[in-house]
Simulated scan of single mutants.
Amino acid sequence: MKVDKLRTVIIYIIIILLGLVCLLPLLNIVAISFSSSAAVEGNMVGLIPVGFSTAAYKKILEDSQFWHSFLISVERVVLALIINFVLIVLMAYPLSKTNAQFRGRNIYANLMIFAMLFNGGMIPTFLVVKSYGLLNTVWALVLPGAVPIFNVILVMNFFAAVPKELEEAAFIDGANPLQVLTKIFIPISKPVLATVSLFSIVGSWNDFYSGLIYMSKAAYYPLMTYIQSLQINVEDLIKQGNLSAVVDSASLGNTNLNAAKIVIAVIPLLLIYPLLQRYFVSGIVVGSVKG
């Protein structure tokens, strides 16, 4: 018993240390975002703000473009989540069957794996998006990633592990394949569906590079792309004769601004993750094991 208790204590200590390793850098970022520019440049900030200042958040939140980009990101996340969910489920269900049940199943599965390992690249994808007239629209941010193949594999393996007796009983009762999918498979697949939904939300929210590629104007930027482009350039402010902005920027540096960007970007994810976290482990474990 003593050995078991000692092992448990050691495990908890290791987990606490790992948690601190993850938490302390975030606390440092939060402290930097609320500190004065002089304290940050002097490397005086640890886990507590020095020369408390909200200038970084004020600059970001008072910008009307920030809220416009925020709404674009919300729209993008919602559309991507719906499209990903529908296409993943409709693709995973038939692929979870055997080759005898679904002729050509192995061919489709192999093509899917090939597409996951090898893609056309940035330039061909850009040309496709441009040829369909999707540039500077939210669809350019959503459709190129409409079918995340890794997520399809997770859901496919989860569906394959569902007892066949459930499906057979439903067919005997007169259900069609769509009814079996919506009434049986989806309700009992909450762990893996919550997991892929979390992947979709995080991926769509954090992606800033697509906005740089497919959007030609800042007015069309999603939030991550917009805050990534925010910089303080005192020389430009002086050239423009904007002396009040120069005075305001005296207490604000790019390091503060970048820290505030990170904090703002993380907040929505911190609100969403606890709602889906309880499904995360079981969804990954079951979905990654081939049935």
Rank of each mutant, 00 (worst) to 15 (best):
F158D: 09
F158E: 07
G145I: 04
E168K: 15
Q179G: 13
P148G: 09
V155Q: 01
L178D: 02
F171G: 01
K190T: 11
F171K: 14
T182C: 12
K190F: 11
I188P: 01
S200E: 10
W139V: 08
K164Y: 09
P163K: 13
K183H: 15
M156A: 07
P148Q: 11
A175L: 14
S204I: 09
A194R: 06
S197P: 11
F158R: 03
V142I: 15
L141G: 02
K164P: 05
L181A: 02
A175I: 09
I186N: 00
A161W: 07
N157P: 08
V147H: 06
F159P: 00
L198P: 03
L135S: 02
I149D: 05
V142R: 07
V142E: 08
S189H: 02
Q179I: 04
L181I: 03
W139P: 09
L181V: 00
N176W: 11
N136E: 00
V202Y: 12
E168D: 15
I153K: 01
F171C: 08
A175T: 08
A146H: 06
E165G: 11
N136W: 06
K183I: 07
V147L: 15
V180N: 00
T182D: 04
S204Y: 10
V155E: 03
K190R: 14
L178V: 13
S197C: 13
V152K: 01
G174W: 07
P163H: 12
F159L: 05
S197T: 14
F158Y: 15
T137G: 08
M156P: 04
S189F: 00
V196Y: 03
F199K: 01
A160L: 11
L154F: 11
